[in-house]
Simulated assay, not measured.
Amino acid sequence: MKLHLFITTFLFSCILYAKEDSTKKIEKFLQKNERVLVHVHADWCPSCKTQKKIISSLDKKSYKLLEVDFDNDKEFLKKNKIFQQSMLLSFINEKETGRVFGITKKEKIVGFIEKKLGNSLQAELDGRRAGSNIPDSARMTMEQATEELEKSGMIAKAKSKGDKFVDFTLPNINGENVKLSEKLKDGPVILTFYRGGWCPYCNIQLKAYQDHLGEFKAAGGQLIAVSPESSDSGSTTVDKNKIEYEILSDNLNKVARKYGLVFKLSEELKNVYLKFGLDLEKNQGNDSWELPVPATYVIDKNGEIVYSFLNVDYVQRAEPKDIVEALNSLK
C-alpha cells in the first residue's frame, strides 16, 4: 500500500514537473527571441497538420517558430487563455500581438505572419506597443476607452469605401490653404487622419508613408495628412519625421467631424494623458480634448472613396502596400 502510494506520488510529481519545465522552456524561448510565431497544434488535428506543412515551407528570417502542443503544454495555454488547437499567435518582446484560428490557406497564413511579424507597418506598430511600459491602471483606462468607441458604432457611421468625399480647405504648416477638390484635379488623393505628433504610433505611420512616398507617386497618388494639432505643432512633426508631403491643421476637428471620425476623451482618459505629459490643449491650441480615430482614404478624381481604413484602435493603421494596390486599381 505504501509502495503504491509512493509510486503514485512520484509519478504525479514527475508529470507536474514536466508541465512546469515545458512552460519554462516556452517562456525562455519567448524571452530569448524578439518576434515569435506560436503554432498551437495537436497530433490528431487535420488542420494543424496542414498549417504545419505550410509554415515549414516559409522563410522565417523575420521571426522564430515555436510549436506548442495542445495536449501537453496546458499550463502555457491556460496562462495565455488559449482554448483551441490550430491556433497561430504572434509574440513581440514576450507580448502577444495577434492570434488567428483555423486558417489553412497559404495566402492567409502568410498574410497574418507578414502583418504581425514581418516588415509591415503593422508589425512595427505592434512591436512598439509590445515594448511600451504603460502602468496597468493607465492601460486599462485606454483599453476601456477603445472598447467604448467600438460599442458606439462610430466606424459604421463614418465615411467609408463607396461614399463621396467631403471637400475642405485647410492650412498647411506654412499657412497656405489647401483645397481637396483642387488637389483631385491632379489625380487621386490619399487622405489620412492622424492624432498628432505627440503620438508615437502616428509618427511611425507618418515616417512609413514618407518612406513609401515614391511608390504612392508612381501609382498616381498625392498624399495629404490631416490632424487637429496646430500648424506650429504640425511643423515640429514635419521636421521630426522629415516629411515631404502636405500636413494640414484641422482646427477643432471640423473636417474630421464631417468624415465621422471624432470622439471626445473621457475625464479618466484625459487624466492619463496629462500624467504622461500629453497636453492636447497646448498641442491643438484649444480646450476641446477631442481626437480623430486613425483613418486613411484613397479618393479618385471623381471624388469617390475607393479605399478606406478606419479603426478605433489607435495602433491599427493602413498598410502602404494596400494603399498602392488601391491606387493601381484606378489605372
Rank of each mutant, 00 (worst) to 15 (best):
A318I: 04
I305K: 08
L291Y: 03
D232N: 12
Y201R: 06
L265K: 04
W289A: 08
V306W: 07
S249R: 05
N33D: 08
E267R: 09
I299M: 01
E114F: 00
V315Q: 10
F83M: 11
E268V: 06
I15M: 12
V68R: 04
D126V: 06
I305M: 06
L291T: 04
R129M: 11
I54S: 01
G127Q: 09
E20I: 14
I26N: 08
I109Q: 02
I109P: 03
F76S: 07
F112S: 06
E96T: 11
N251I: 06
L327W: 02
T97C: 10
K95N: 13
I109D: 03
K60S: 14
M87R: 13
K179A: 14
K240T: 12
R129H: 03
K264E: 12
L58F: 03
S137E: 15
K159I: 09
D71V: 04
Q284I: 00
Y63M: 08
Y201C: 07
P171F: 05
S120N: 09
E124L: 12
T237M: 14
I299F: 02
A295F: 04
S230T: 14
I247E: 06
Q284E: 12
I55A: 07
K95T: 11
E147L: 15
N241Y: 02
S57F: 04
L223F: 10
Y314E: 01
I155W: 00
E290L: 04
L184Y: 00
G221Q: 07
K159R: 14
E20Q: 14
S266P: 10
G285T: 08
A145P: 10
A225T: 03
K19R: 13
K159S: 10
V255E: 02
E148R: 13
M140D: 14
K264L: 00
P292M: 01
E94A: 08
D232M: 12
C199K: 00
S249C: 07
V189W: 01
Q316M: 13
S62A: 12
